[in-house]
């Protein structure tokens, strides 16, 4: 009986722990209020694709320094979920997705002011272990016997890009796994469980040498290049601030940070 009670406790504790962990997810909004008196405290909420995380966090700090009294909070996530959230009326001022398709979801729902701008692109690379021990050269070589390759599932943007590149190369890959997102692919290569994977230049760059990136010609094929559109969300209380964020991202500081991370800026 005692054991049964204890096991019930354990199950209960597990449930509570799960809830607590989930609750932690979005708790950083509203923190970091400015103490400066001259400028009214304002908070800009930016919903941005997960692949922008490090660049945007850096730019967020710089933007706050340049605009005293302003706090930038980020909601990073998958582009599709972010667009869905905006369509459902989530309180965001700026939407920055990692594909035109997801941005169009928000545009068609009338949730974006004017035309979104594409300010950066990202191209695919073949990620391999440092020094390329398996001698991978191009897309076709991923199908060699004994090579374990991993890509994104076609349903997600990086998978659609991979599919477009495959089509351009006339190759049909036989991956060991179709991951949910590009970081999943990167992890497989980084832990040595896959020999090669299709990821973006920015992902390779983010590993700081733990993974090597190989360029291949079909990476620039139609549909394989990832566009990064950005737009002001309709109904934003901070539309002017949202607009200056967009200008900032497209300005010299934003361009430098994006290029540093491996993006091609426009």
């Amino acid at each position: 009986m005692r054991t049964r009670f204890r096991s019930a406790l354990m199950v209960g504790a597990a449930a509570v722990l799960g809830l607590a962990l989930t609750a932690c997810g979005g708790s950083d909004s509203g923190s970091g209020q400015s103490t400066q008196a001259q400028a009214p405290a304002r908070t800009l909420t930016v919903s941005a694709a997960a692949s922008l995380t490090s660049v945007y966090q850096q730019l967020g700090t710089e933007f706050q320094n340049a605009n005293p009294g302003t706090t930038v909070t980020f909601n990073f996530g998958g582009s599709d979920s972010l667009a869905q959230q905006v369509v459902q009326g989530a309180p965001a001022d700026v939407l920055a997705t990692a594909s035109s398709k997801t941005m169009n979801t928000a545009v068609q729902a009338g949730k974006i002011q004017g035309e979104p701008v594409v300010y950066a692109t990202n191209t695919l690379q073949i990620a391999v272990a440092p020094n390329n021990p398996k001698g991978i050269t191009d897309l076709a070589s991923l199908n060699r016997p004994g090579i374990v390759s991993v890509v994104c599932a076609p349903a997600v943007p990086c998978g659609a890009a991979a599919e477009a590149a495959e089509k351009a190369a006339g190759v049909t890959l036989t991956p060991a796994s179709e991951e949910q997102d590009v970081k999943g692919v990167l992890n497989r290569v980084q832990t040595g469980n896959a020999d090669a994977g299709l990821v973006y230049v920015t992902d390779v760059r983010s590993t700081q040498g733990k993974v090597q990136g190989l360029d291949f010609p079909q990476a620039s094929a139609q549909g394989a290049v990832q566009s990064y559109p950005i737009g002001v969300v309709n109904g934003s209380q901070n539309a002017d601030l949202a607009q200056s964020w967009i200008s900032f991202v497209r300005g010299p500081q934003g361009t430098a940070a994006l290029q540093q991370a491996g993006f091609v800026t426009k």
């Binding site: 979920s81 349903a155 997600v156 060991a176 179709e178 991951e179 497989r188």
Partner: peptide, 22 residues
Amino acid sequence: AGSLEGTTRTLPLFIYLESESD
């Protein structure tokens, strides 16, 4: 295990992937 149709993509993995597109 990863996620590949018919080999490792179980129902919960399928649902998570579908939620991205459909």
